[in-house]
Amino acid sequence: MLIITAYGVFAVSSFARAGYQIVPLPQEDKVQFADAPLALTLSAFAAAVYIIATLALARTTTTAWKVAMVAVLIEMIGVIGVGAWTLVQPELFEVATVWGGFGRDYGFIPLILPFVGLFWLLKHRPAHSP
């Protein structure tokens, strides 16, 4: 239950952050999508991955397990890839993202979470039907 809660928290927080960063509000001084399309698109993608992972982890079917496994692997690749990318080309990531700096703004939990999720999924593989 703890792993589902952790993914749920990241699903909600990353979705809220991406929405706040992307959706323009009148008379508000904030970064617009046109100013940082790559970073903000990656924030929205991370939110979608966390939402899918949360929903799949909350179910107990074989299909849900497979979907969760794919989502967690995408998350792992994403946080490592985007984290490295932010070090190599920081000028592309002037706007913070969930996976930027390996999840630095979130206490590096985005870097740790996929490894915990993968461990949990491998320990809770669905039984094979004959």
Rank of each mutant, 00 (worst) to 15 (best):
G78W: 00
R104H: 10
H128V: 13
T60Q: 09
L92C: 03
F15G: 00
V82S: 00
V79I: 08
M76C: 12
V12H: 04
Q32C: 08
H128Q: 10
A44I: 10
V23G: 05
E94S: 04
P90C: 02
A56D: 03
G83I: 02
F115I: 09
V12F: 15
M69S: 07
A84S: 13
V67H: 01
F33K: 02
R17P: 00
I52Y: 00
V88Y: 02
A68I: 11
L92E: 14
F102G: 15
M76T: 07
T41A: 08
E28R: 15
A68S: 11
P24Q: 13
F33H: 03
E94M: 12
T61P: 12
H124Q: 05
V70T: 01
Q27R: 09
V31A: 14
A46L: 02
V95T: 11
K30S: 13
G101R: 05
I80L: 14
L111A: 12
V23S: 05
D29W: 04
T62M: 06
T60R: 05
R17N: 10
I112G: 00
I74A: 11
E94I: 08
S14V: 08
L42A: 01
M1K: 08
R17E: 14
A84M: 15
L87F: 09
L2I: 14
P37G: 03
T86H: 02
R125N: 04
A127C: 03
H124C: 06
F10Q: 07
L113M: 09
D29G: 02
V72A: 06
W99D: 00
P126F: 13
T62L: 07
K30D: 06
I80T: 14
G8Y: 09
A36D: 06
M76W: 14
D35W: 07
A39E: 06
P114D: 14
W120S: 10
A36L: 09
M76P: 01
T61A: 09
K123H: 01
F102T: 14
A96Q: 12
F108A: 11
G101F: 00
A56E: 06
V79A: 05
G19P: 01
P114I: 09
A53D: 00
S43A: 13
S43W: 04
A47P: 05
F102L: 12
A6F: 14
A53F: 02
E94G: 10
A46R: 07
V23P: 03
R59I: 11
Q27Y: 08
L92T: 06
V95H: 06
E28K: 15
P110G: 09
A64V: 08
Q32M: 08
T61F: 13
L121K: 10
F119V: 09
A84T: 12
R104Y: 04
